[in-house]
Computed example of a mutant assay.
Amino acid sequence: MPATLTDVAKRAGVSLATASRAFSDPGRLAAETRQKVLSAAEALGYATQTAANGVRTVAVVVPDISNAVFAALIKAIQERAWPGRHRMLLADTGGSEDREREHLASLAGSVDGVILCSPRLPAADITKAAGGMPLVVINGEADAARVLMDAGEGLRQAVEHLYALGHRKFAYVPGPASSWANGQRAATVKRLCEEWGVDLVTVGHQNATVDGGLAAAAAVVASGATAVIAYNDLVAVGLLAGARTLGYHCPEDVSVVGIDDLDIAAAAEPGLTSVRVAIERSGSLGLDLLLEQIAGRSRATEAVHLGSQLIVRGSTFAARGATALRSGKNGDPT
């Protein structure tokens, strides 16, 4: 059986993401690391898909093409596909399970493979609709190769950061109920708040948009939380605007943290503290794994988790009364 990228990564002693980067974005790796990967590839007889397997047509299915996260994913996939002149077909489901199912069923047999981003369908339905065609899922559950943008480490840093600033009551603003990422992020925030002894309020599910954040602002303000973690940066920016219309200001009255670290996070006023996830890496690695399946190589059997980190900007600041909290007053631990 031909060597896979996973085989190369194991032989070189690096992660699958690092092995992929050696071919797709070598300038981001240390010369020594890249050489390890290339040497392992040569020893195993691994050939990159862009050179070895001809032009392919792949479909990319997303729930919302207007969302900057999916725009960045699409761009990363296109950039990775360009050297091999692979063609890309794009489908937008509008977040609808029915449309997602119909797209998958109609694509079977008409494209070489599919990258399904943030699916809304249950795993069993994805498998049935895909009909055995090569498939990679980004941020979702499925019986398929998966690439996951894991926000866990960045969220741990965020909770620790907010706690150090004296915040003891948090709010979490969730995204769509059918989103895998939302389920993971909500569960992680809940677990971390329990570990740190922080009071957590979760408001109702929102669209993953600026309007979703605007809609949640009143509930967040009414909760009495002094710090908020939002499902994504768009929701966080909406919260900033919504809080202002209600007479609250960030970060003086409430600290806000987003997730994704989109360009809008740096441009927001104040700059948005955000958990940076590996959006571009997910796209390029997803295509690498799909091309391996199309070429008849063994499918990845374990999900690839790509890490995250907190990027601190002006939207987080010391909580009201934080000096008293740190000095051990009001019965709170130092």
Results as ranks from 00 to 15, higher is better:
Asp64Leu: 10
Trp82Thr: 10
Gly247Val: 14
Gly154Asn: 07
Asp143Pro: 04
Glu79Val: 08
Ile138Asp: 02
Ala322Glu: 09
Pro333Glu: 06
Val58Leu: 00
Ala105Pro: 00
Leu162Arg: 00
Gln49Ser: 15
Glu269Tyr: 08
Glu97Gly: 09
Thr202Trp: 00
Tyr163Arg: 11
Ser179Leu: 15
Leu306His: 11
Arg191Lys: 14
Ala295Lys: 08
Gly238Tyr: 04
Asn67Thr: 06
Asn330His: 13
Leu192Met: 04
Pro83Ala: 02
Gly27Cys: 08
Ser39Ile: 10
Ala47Trp: 05
Val256Trp: 07
Gly152Trp: 03
Val304Ile: 07
Arg85Cys: 05
Asn207Ile: 10
Ala130Arg: 07
Leu262Trp: 03
Val14Pro: 10
Gln78Trp: 03
His86Val: 07
Arg156Pro: 01
Asn139Asp: 15
Ala216Cys: 06
Val198His: 00
Ala268His: 12
Gly84Cys: 15
Arg244Pro: 00
His205Ile: 05
Leu44Phe: 10
Ser274Val: 01
Thr4Asp: 06
Ala319Phe: 01
Leu116Glu: 00
Lys128Ala: 15
Val189His: 02
Gly154Trp: 01
Asn207Gly: 13
Asn207Tyr: 12
Ala124Gly: 09
Leu246Trp: 01
Gly238Ile: 01
Ala41Thr: 12
Gln78Glu: 15
Ile264Ser: 13
His205Met: 04
Gly175Lys: 08
Gly213Asp: 10
Arg85Glu: 13
Glu269Arg: 06
Gln157Val: 01
Pro122Gly: 07
Thr273Arg: 14
Gln309His: 14
Asn139Ser: 08
Ser179Val: 14
Phe317Gly: 11
Arg326His: 14
Arg276His: 11
Val277Tyr: 09
Leu121Asn: 08
Arg101Gly: 01
Asn330Cys: 10
Pro83Phe: 02
Val235Ser: 01
Cys250Asn: 04
Ile138Asn: 03
Gly321Ala: 15
Ala322Tyr: 04
Gly13Asp: 06
Val62Lys: 13
Pro174Trp: 06
Ala265Phe: 03
Ala43Gln: 14
Thr245Trp: 00
Thr6Cys: 07
Tyr46Val: 13
Ala324Met: 15
Ala72Phe: 00
Gly321Gln: 14
Gly331Ala: 09
Ile77His: 00
Ile126Ser: 05
Arg276Phe: 01
Ile77Glu: 02
Val203Pro: 03
Leu116Tyr: 01
Gly283Asp: 02
Val201Arg: 02
Val60Trp: 13
Ala30Leu: 15
Arg21Cys: 03
Glu100Ile: 09
Ser96Cys: 04
Leu325Phe: 12
Gln49Trp: 12
Lys190Asn: 11
Leu262Lys: 09
Arg168Ser: 08
Ala322Gln: 04
Thr301Ile: 14
Ile279Ala: 11
Thr18Asp: 06
Ala31His: 11
Leu285Gly: 03
Arg168Ala: 04
Leu155His: 03
Ala145Arg: 13
